[in-house]
Each structure stands twice: as structure tokens, then as C-alpha cells.
Amino acid sequence: MTRRTTVHDLRSQKGSRKWLQLHVDNAEEAAAAMECGITILSCEPDHNLESIRSAVPFAFLSVGMPHGAVSSQQEAIRLGFQMLKRGADSIYCSHSAYFIEAMAREGIPVTGHVGLVPNRATWTNFRAIGRTPEEALRVLRAVRDLENAGAAAIEVEVVPVRLADYITRNTPMITMGMGCGSACDTQYLFSSDVLGTHADHYPRHSKRYADFVALTAELQTKRVEAFRAFAADVASGAYPETRHQVDMDDAAFERFFTLAQSI
């Protein structure tokens, strides 16, 4: 790939291609994803954003607008443009369609969210959303609201596969599926779940392909071993050796000593 993936690229291939998508935490993860052909990424707008953008100049990068960060349409537009300037291709926003519409009117690509929305889980609890006909209809209404607001993409999280499939086939938005089988336009997971970087709860839809908790523990053991050996060498006089230091010849030191007497 020789140029950055755009909203137009994604929309023009909707229905004919399934995209892989990862939420990454740093530039190393982003570069590894890109090396594997994963060109749709998401991340937080923290200090890693610029380094992630630099590591994957051609990826499509959706950057999360912190929930509650804006309280007016003007603030949403201002923050949206700031995030685009920092390297985002799309602004993930779990705020209402009111804010999304304001950004979309200004040409800011926005990714909305339906189904299990963690920032609103107090209203639903953390569970599958849309199993009953009535709840499925509420999910669809939320999709239509975001679609009418001008969202470019929509995260569909933990809804029944048939509902996710219906949504995907009946909206022009790119559907980013997490916990929805293979029904959506993208197959989306968090790198922390894929890499096994934490010892906390893993959602049902996640799958661990590595055990970074064990690797991190092993690295910590190696750190302690190395630091302990360093301390022991200093205590015994084994470090530093002559090869670890520099010195002056006798003539240079004598000249220095003479000059030093004048200070």
C-alpha cells in the first residue's frame, strides 16, 4: 500500500471485502498489525497517538473522543478537527447523534457505536444487546439515528449475528463488528485481548493468541536477576573493570594537578 486508506476506500469495498481491525495501545503494536496486513486500527488520543500515526502512515486510524469530553456541538467540532490534525482518519464517538451530526456537517468522519456501549452500560449492564425483538428494534433505531446524522462508520458490539448481518446489509455505513460473528464489514478485537496482556476478565468474544502476562513476568524476573548481579559485582569489586573506564596518563595528570593549584 502506497497511500493512506480512506473512508471512500472502505465504502467502495463494502459488501465485497471483510477487513481486519485492531485497537492498539502503542506504535509497536500498530507496526506489527500493519505488517500482517491489518490496515484498520483504532487507538486512544493519548501521548501515543503521534507515534502510532508515524508507525503506520497508510493505515485507517479511528481515534476515540473521550466520552464526556465535549458539552456542545462547537466543542465537538473543535476537538474533532484537533484529533484529525494529530493523525486521526475518523473520530470514534459514543456521544449522541447530536454531536456526531455537528462533526459530520463539517466533513469530519465519525464512527458511532451501538449494541453494548461500555460508556453507557449503566443502562444495559455488560451483556449481549438485542436478543429480544423490541431491543433489536431499539438497536436498529440507534443505527438509523447515527446514519441520518452522517456517521461514516459504526461499531456494532455484542449483538446477535443475524441482527448484525441485517444492519450491515441495510446501511451504507462501515460496520465494525466486535462479538458479532463474521457478519460485519470488519472483524474487530483489542490487541490487549489478542496478546493476553492482562490478568483481568476477557470477554467471551475475545481470543488470546499469546500470553504477554507470562512474558512480562519472565522479563521482570530477568530484570531482577540482572540488577542483583550488578549489585553483587559492585559489592565484590568485580565491576567496574579497567575496560569499563577511562584514565589519563601520568604527564597529563601532573599538568592538570599543577593547573589545579591556581583555582
Rank of each mutant, 00 (worst) to 15 (best):
L259Y: 11
A149G: 12
R169L: 14
G181S: 02
T216F: 10
L10A: 13
I40N: 13
R127Y: 07
P240C: 09
R228V: 15
D165Y: 15
A217V: 10
A226S: 11
R11G: 02
M65F: 06
S62F: 05
Q21N: 01
I129P: 07
Q82I: 04
L163T: 04
A149R: 00
E44N: 03
A238Q: 10
E147D: 13
L189M: 15
R255C: 02
L215W: 06
A260W: 06
T5D: 04
R17F: 13
A226P: 04
Y202P: 03
L140E: 04
P45A: 12
N26A: 02
M1I: 06
D247K: 01
P109G: 10
R120V: 00
P160A: 06
P57K: 14
E135T: 02
S51G: 10
A27K: 05
K14Y: 06
A231P: 08
E75R: 00
I77V: 10
L140R: 09
H47A: 14
A102Q: 01
I52C: 03
P109D: 05
A183S: 14
A142C: 11
K207W: 13
H113W: 09
R223I: 07
D200I: 01
F81G: 02
I167G: 05
I108F: 01
E134R: 09
D193Q: 09
F227K: 10
F230M: 14
I38H: 10
L41Q: 01
T197V: 08
D200E: 07
A59P: 07
I40E: 06
I129T: 04
I77N: 02
M83C: 01
A151E: 03
E50T: 14
V161Y: 11
G15C: 07
P160G: 05
V63Y: 03
H95T: 03
T221D: 14
P57A: 07
L259H: 13
T6H: 01
H95S: 01
V114N: 07
G196T: 13
F212S: 11
V70R: 04
H8M: 12
Q245T: 09
R120N: 04
R141K: 13
G68F: 06
E147K: 03
G179L: 05
A260K: 14
G130L: 08
R17Q: 14
L20C: 05
S206R: 09
V117D: 00
R243K: 13
M173P: 06
H67D: 02
W123F: 15
L146V: 00
D89F: 00
Q21L: 06
T258P: 02
F60N: 02
T258Q: 15
C36R: 13
R223M: 07
F256E: 09
A252P: 07
A121S: 14
I38E: 14
I167W: 00
E225Y: 14
V63Q: 08
A214M: 11
Y166P: 03
E155W: 06
R208L: 08
S12G: 03
S182D: 12
T122F: 13
T216R: 13
A102R: 00
D233R: 06
V161M: 12
L22R: 00
R4Y: 00
D250S: 13
L116A: 01
L22M: 12
A27G: 01
Y239R: 15
V56L: 03
V110D: 12
A88Y: 00
F190A: 05
A183E: 14
Y188K: 14
D249L: 07
